[in-house]
């Protein structure tokens, strides 16, 4: 699950060539001015809008600052301490972890199952793939607005459950009524409802990734396993799954990173409510920093989010993805 960021290329292009500068006129040589023309524009834009702001926030995160006027009210690490002690911010971090864990334990197997399914010779599988991936192209705003309508009390989801529920053997009408609740209004379930919607939007992405991974597995291997007497499940377990490992780990990586970035969908459906039950780190930042004119505090929260995401990403890269790639991202 992820927001707007795109999948990461983790593989390094074939054997990195040494950066030693070749001689003038040889392939691989360009003069410094030429290189500057090539690289500097991108470097300047990137540095100015991506790197500079977060460096800048180091400066104002140690002030109490309403965003206007000079930085005068020095508070040291006070903003950081306040954020880390804030039950709301802690809850926001926790919610992001919940989404990450649910993504890994539910969304990933679901996407994998569908990828395996669409890897069969199934008539219309191209169409299925197109349709399953389609929600990924919709904006989170649209997704949120539509699902908010569907999930409202007495909305379509409720009607469907009321109609279909009692048809399931062993499920009584009363049990169905007991099960019904305001899906986005009950602090106990709102986060799970949002997770459901996030899954609706993003499982297609992971399915497509995994499908591409599956199609990269030579069919001879599976045939060989079949000849050795392995059943379909065993073949999957011992041949497909290990070979799919790198793709799965990348999907997991995207899900974890994405879980920490969720904003749009939450903002348009619940705004972090009810009573903060769906607050994510991003909605917390906008609500408590921007919305309350506390830019110094917001700067501290930004840095904390940055640090949490970076540590997690680097940790994952180092200990999980390392097997797959040499010298991956950083």
């Amino acid at each position: 699950m992820q927001t707007q960021s795109q999948p990461t290329r983790v593989s390094q292009p074939s054997a990195p060539t040494p950066s030693r500068r070749p001689l003038r006129g040889a392939p691989g040589y360009a003069s410094w001015p030429t290189l500057a023309v090539l690289v500097l524009p991108a470097l300047v834009v990137y540095g100015l809008f991506v790197i500079y702001p977060i460096v800048q926030s180091l400066r104002f995160s140690v002030y109490n600052w309403n965003g206007l006027g000079p930085l005068t009210d020095w508070v040291g690490l006070g903003n950081f301490v306040e954020a880390l002690n804030s039950p709301d911010f802690r809850a926001a971090i926790f919610h992001c972890f919940v989404i990450a864990v649910l993504s890994l334990t539910l969304q990933l197997p679901f996407a994998l199952a569908l990828a395996v399914l669409l890897n069969q010779k199934l008539a219309g599988r191209g169409l299925f793939r197109t349709m399953f991936f389609a929600p990924y192209v919709l904006s989170e705003v649209v997704t949120g607005v539509v699902w908010r309508q569907l999930l409202r009390p007495d909305g379509m989801v409720d009607r469907v459950i009321e109609t279909v529920g009692p048809l399931i053997p062993g499920v009584s009408e009363a049990a169905v009524q007991e099960f019904m609740r305001p899906w986005l209004g009950d602090p106990g379930v709102a986060l799970y409802s949002l997770f459901f919607v996030l899954t609706w939007k993003y499982f297609g992405l992971h399915m497509v990734l995994l499908l591409a991974g599956l199609q990269g597995i030579p069919s001879e291997l599976k045939e060989a396993a079949a000849i050795d007497g392995a059943g379909p499940w065993q073949a999957f377990r011992h041949v497909t799954l290990p070979l799919l490992g790198p793709t799965i780990r990348i999907s997991m990586f995207l899900m974890i990173i994405g879980s920490f970035h969720v904003f749009d969908l939450v903002w348009v459906t619940t705004r972090g409510g009810p009573v903060g039950a769906t607050q994510t780190m991003a909605t917390y930042l906008i609500d408590f920093g921007f919305g309350r004119n506390r830019f110094g505090y917001g700067g501290a929260v930004s840095i904390l989010i940055f640090a949490i995401s970076m540590v997690l990403a680097l940790f994952y890269q180092r200990f999980v993805l390392r097997r797959d790639v040499e010298g991956a991202l950083t």
Binding site: Q56, A282, L285, S302, F306
Partner: peptide, 13 residues
Amino acid sequence: LYPVVAATLPLWL
């Protein structure tokens, strides 16, 4: 790896 959301507030400034 950069969390865009974390950048929003400083970027805005």
